[in-house]
Every structure is written in C-alpha cells, then in structure tokens.
Design a binder for these strands. Sequence first.
DNA 1: GTCTATATCTCGATAGAC
DNA 2: GTCTATCGAGATATAGAC
Lengths: 192, 192
Amino acid sequence: MSAREQLTGAMAELLWERGYAATSPRDVMARAGVGQGSMYHHFSGKHELAVEALSAVIGDATGEVSLLEGEGSPLERMKRYLSLPRPGTQGCRVGRMTQDPQVVTDAELITIVASAFDTMLGRWEQTIAEAVEAGELPASIRPADLARTLAAVIQGGYVLARAKGEQGPMDAAIRGALSLLDAAHSAVDADH
Amino acid sequence: MSAREQLTGAMAELLWERGYAATSPRDVMARAGVGQGSMYHHFSGKHELAVEALSAVIGDATGEVSLLEGEGSPLERMKRYLSLPRPGTQGCRVGRMTQDPQVVTDAELITIVASAFDTMLGRWEQTIAEAVEAGELPASIRPADLARTLAAVIQGGYVLARAKGEQGPMDAAIRGALSLLDAAHSAVDADH
DNA sequence: GTCTATATCTCGATAGAC
DNA sequence: GTCTATCGAGATATAGAC
C-alpha cells in the first residue's frame, strides 16, 4: 500500500477515535508508519489530509444508507435501517465531527459533513413519503420532519451511549423509535 | 465578582463554545480578566476548574427538566418540554461533552455528564410511565426505551443543526417527534 | 519520495516577586 | 491573592540531505 493510502487510512481511524482537533500530524504519521517528509510531500498539511480521509469515510457511510432503497415495504425498510448494528460508545464517524470546534470553523470540512447529512436526509424523506402514500403511516406525518427526527434518534443514541460508556442507551433509543413507528402504523389502520 | 467566580463563569462559557480539549487555561484567564497566578491559586489546574464549571452548568440544566413535573397531563408535559426553545447551532452544553476525547477519558468529568443524563432520563421515564397508565400512550410503549428515544431526538437535533449551521433541523426533528407522539396517542384511543 | 533535523508557537504548569 | 517570568513538552510546519 502506498504511503498516501496509509496516511489517509490512519487519519480516518484517528478522526473516529479522537476527532480532528485532538489528532496531530505526528499521531497520523506514527500510525501510518511513515515519516514526516512523506506526509508533507503528499499533503499540504493536516487540513488537506483530513479532507481526503473524511471524504472516503463519507463515501462508505453514504453507501450504507442505500438500505433504505432495498426490498420490502417502505416502513419495513425504515425499520431495517434503524435496526442496523451501531457501535454506540464509539460514536458516529460523521456526526462526531459536528462537535469538533476546529471542524465547524473549517468551511471545507463542515461542508463535507453537511452534504453527507443532506444526502442521508433526502433518502429518509423519500422513503417516509412512500410509507405515507402506501398507507403505512398517517397522513399527518410530514416526511421532512420525521426524516430529521429519525436521523436525530440515531445521532442522539450515540451521544447517550458515549455519556454512559455503554451500548444500552443506543439500542433502547432505537427500540423506542420502532415502537413509536408501530403505534403510528396502528393509528392509520384504525382510521380505515 | 471574585476572581474565582470570574474563572468558573469564563470556563463554563468556553466549554460550551469550544469544548474542553480546545479550551486552554490561557483562554479562560483572558476571558475572566485574571492573571495566571490567580487561576493556579484557586484551582489546581484546568481539570479542577472544569469540574466546578461543569457542575454549575448541569445544576441549571437539571432544573429545566423539572418542566416534566409541572401542571397538565403527562403527555402534555412531555410535549411542552420537547417544545422548549433550544439553540441548535450552539449545541447542548452537556451532550457536547460526550464527543470530547479529553472528557470521555477523564473519569471525573464523564461521571458528572453521565449522572446528569441519568437524572434527566429518570424524569422522562417516570412521566412516560404516567402517560401510559393514564391511557395517553399505548401499553406497548416501554418507558425506559421511549425516554432514551426522546432524549436522543433532542441530542441528535443539536448534531443536525450544527452540521447545517442552521436552527431548522432541530425544530424539524422536534416537530416530527411530536407528530409521532400524536399518532401513538390516536392509536391508543382506537383500541378503546 | 522519503528521511532527519530544526524552527516557532502554544499548552499546561511552576517559581517566586510583590 | 495576584502578578510576571519561565519551563518542558508537544503541535505544526519548513529545510535540506539522501
């Protein structure tokens, strides 16, 4: 593997483990097993390295959201995506960035994060709209709102899990959301 | 105001604006308008100053949760607390800490954060249980799960708002949660 | 392309004058 | 109690040999 790939891979790992501000170029080079000269040959500095690493991470994460477009009814797909295993105590590799002061004030980095969320929210919105049209959820549900609610449950689940240092709160938050969706589904049936 | 109070106040502000790791003793002293000698006279260092500042912040936040115990039916109280104004783009002063690598590895700080969430989740759980008993929510709802779901919506709302740099996603996430609660409420009516 | 050596700054803390 | 001076370490980057 080339030094460049070693560096972006190490940066991606460290962004997840420690965030951007807390990761030094020295940390990245040590984990990549590469000298300082290599790093500054391939990248202008920490910022550029993070841009490339974060873009790769977000490519993976965006791929996972395609589970919202697979087989099954819209509501089944929503529940399936919510139920994906998520390592709560490690935090979300994307959402984590929004709490890093150096990321939020870095126009290029925060734009990458924002557009990743836009993509995800767009898929959520579409699937929820399909569920409403199919009569699986009440017409009172606004897809744009519920998309943000469900994305927030996942992001907030990471926060609660990290606060406790346990997986439990993440799983509980998801279960609660599934039970609300089931209840909402019952409500639409009752109207028919 | 005493130098000590200036220092804890300044630290509380900076913890919110920048987090713990990104706040240096120098920053705190500058904002407090106090010299280095004063700071190390009153506190052993950055850690102890943060413990005192964070404890004060959490005292305030915990007081706000008492809205879950005021007047009105359980479901009304839940919706009222969810609807409190929250400055999304600034982030949650408590939840923010969980993404800071220096906080998570500091046993005393993360314990303060964890116990704050425990207090809040306990009040949520009790109010939800009351709503189920009162027939405002279906019996299929597990209070411990839904408590974490609704806390996660708020925490996740902050994440989405910071990603976009806008208040909108926070408000949308709350609206979506309220609409799910309303739908769940309709479902229990239908069963009677 | 990759390395080591070095420069400059800031961090978090200590020393000691007043 | 409050100040300034200073320390040792690490962050981020540059210089220049190979």
